[in-house]
Amino acid sequence: MPATIDQATRTAVTARITTHVKRGWPRLGTPLVRFRGQFCYVDAVLPGHRQPQPILRLRYQGSADRWDIGIYLASDEHYTESELPTSFGPKTGTPEQGIDHTFILYAGPGTQH
């Protein structure tokens, strides 16, 4: 697995995440997407908050369409790939699946896509 994510993938994934959040959770505004090493972090302004809050961490699996999905646990202030409820689907997927599986826990159901 590459230690870092190439710039073309970063740009494409940022656009995909931003578009998906604006379409599915428009009340949250534009997400904050950042990269570090093999990870992509996504924050959003949740209802009742003024600043972006951590929501999701994606671990790169060598393709823009394959990531391990990790949710931010505010209670412990860390990300985990093992705490995502299995009822929400696989723990590996696209950035859009990561958004769908984690944002619903923090922000409630999104709009119809």
Rank of each mutant, 00 (worst) to 15 (best):
G98S: 11
F88H: 15
S75D: 14
P47M: 02
I69G: 04
G48A: 13
T86P: 03
S63R: 09
F88R: 15
S82R: 12
P52W: 03
P109C: 06
Q112S: 12
Q112R: 15
D68I: 07
R66K: 15
I99D: 02
P54W: 03
G110L: 02
E81A: 10
I71D: 01
L46C: 09
S75K: 07
E77Q: 14
S82P: 05
P85I: 15
T92S: 15
H78G: 10
P109Q: 08
L56P: 00
P95K: 07
G70V: 01
L105R: 12
Y60P: 01
R66M: 12
G98F: 00
D65S: 14
P95T: 04
I99A: 03
D68H: 07
G48C: 07
A74E: 15
L46F: 09
G98K: 02
P52D: 08
I69P: 00
P109Y: 04
A64D: 12
G70K: 00
P95L: 02
R66E: 10
G108P: 09
L105K: 06
R50T: 08
S63A: 11
Q53N: 08
Q112E: 07
R59K: 12
T92W: 01
D68R: 09
G70S: 09
R57S: 07
Y79N: 05
H49D: 10
F88I: 05
P95I: 06
T94S: 14
A64W: 04
E96D: 11
I71F: 00
E81Y: 13
G108R: 13
A74K: 06
I99N: 03
G48M: 07
P47R: 03
I104M: 13
G98L: 05
L58C: 03
P90A: 14
L58Q: 08
L73H: 11
P85H: 08
L58Y: 02
P52K: 04
T111K: 13
I99R: 05
E83G: 07
E77Y: 06
E77N: 12
Q112G: 01
T102A: 09
H78R: 15
T94G: 09
L84K: 01
Y60G: 02
E77G: 03
P54V: 05
Y106A: 12
L105N: 02
R66W: 07
Q97F: 09
R59N: 12
H78I: 12
S87P: 00
Q61T: 09
Q53Y: 14
